[in-house]
């Protein structure tokens, strides 16, 4: 069957602003990945079409895009997940600078991720064996540890759109990942970093991020746990 992709294009060497271009591609059935269709365009019709990708099954976080107005991974979105009777609109993740076509500049996203000290801090002498942690405590971390840093959440967040200093849901999720790790000793430092107007308090529980996350992570819940922890600390 034939499907139309309406792709946002922008090459800073040539274009003064982004524009849309339509390509008609051939799909075997409705289980084709959007990523495969983008490849079809690139490999068959127009080698200049530019996008990132690597794993092709939703584990590396390279191909977060805006597909029919919703942030998702091109490799985990199948034709049957969208209305393909009409042109499928494919755009780069919103609200961050475009480098070329669908490739965006993630440096601010990474900077905010680094700001929460995204690593285990434990200065106590390590035992000879593993540090003991209950499976329940370990599983408290698993959902947050699933994050693939794709940027779908933060770039869908209205608070991020209106406040460029807002640290954003992905970085807050990472803060949770370590604050709630029973092996970590730097919870206070991290809570200081997120307990600011541009930190957890900028989140107004709008849930856009949750809807956008391709790994089904409930970001809002994790952010609310951080808020609770901060409140407990003040008691």
């Amino acid at each position: 069957m034939k499907v139309t992709l309406r792709i946002q294009r922008y090459n800073p060497e040539r274009d003064s602003e982004p524009y849309y271009q339509e390509f008609i591609v051939e799909a075997g059935d409705d289980k084709e990945r959007i990523l495969d269709l983008l490849h079809q365009v690139k490999w068959k019709y127009d080698g200049t079409l530019t996008f990132r990708r690597s794993c092709a099954h939703g584990v590396c976080g390279s191909d977060g895009l805006r597909i029919n107005g919703r942030n998702r991974l091109a490799c985990s979105t199948l034709l049957r997940d969208v209305n393909y009777k009409k042109p499928i609109v494919i755009e780069p993740l919103p609200s961050i600078p475009i480098i070329k076509d669908l490739v965006v500049d993630m440096s601010d996203f990474y900077k905010k991720y680094e700001a929460v000290k995204p690593y285990l801090v434990n200065k106590s002498p390590a035992p000879e064996h593993e540090r003991i942690q209950s499976n329940e405590d370990a599983e408290m971390l698993f959902e947050s540890a699933k994050c693939i840093l794709c940027g779908c959440c933060t770039t869908s967040c209205p608070s991020s759109w209106s406040d460029e200093n807002y640290i954003g849901p992905a970085a807050l999720l990472k803060a949770y990942r370590f604050v709630f790790d029973t092996r970590d000793e730097a919870a206070d430092e991290r809570l200081d970093i997120v307990d600011t107007p541009d930190g957890i308090w900028r989140c107004h529980t709008i849930f856009n991020c949750v809807e956008a996350c391709p790994k089904d992570i409930n970001l809002t819940w994790h952010i609310s746990q951080l808020k609770k922890r901060v409140a407990e600390r003040e008691m």
Partner: peptide
């Protein structure tokens, strides 16, 4: 690729 996008992650 950005480090965390390496294939070890798969």
């Amino acid at each position: 690729v950005f480090p965390t996008r390496s294939h070890t992650g798969a």
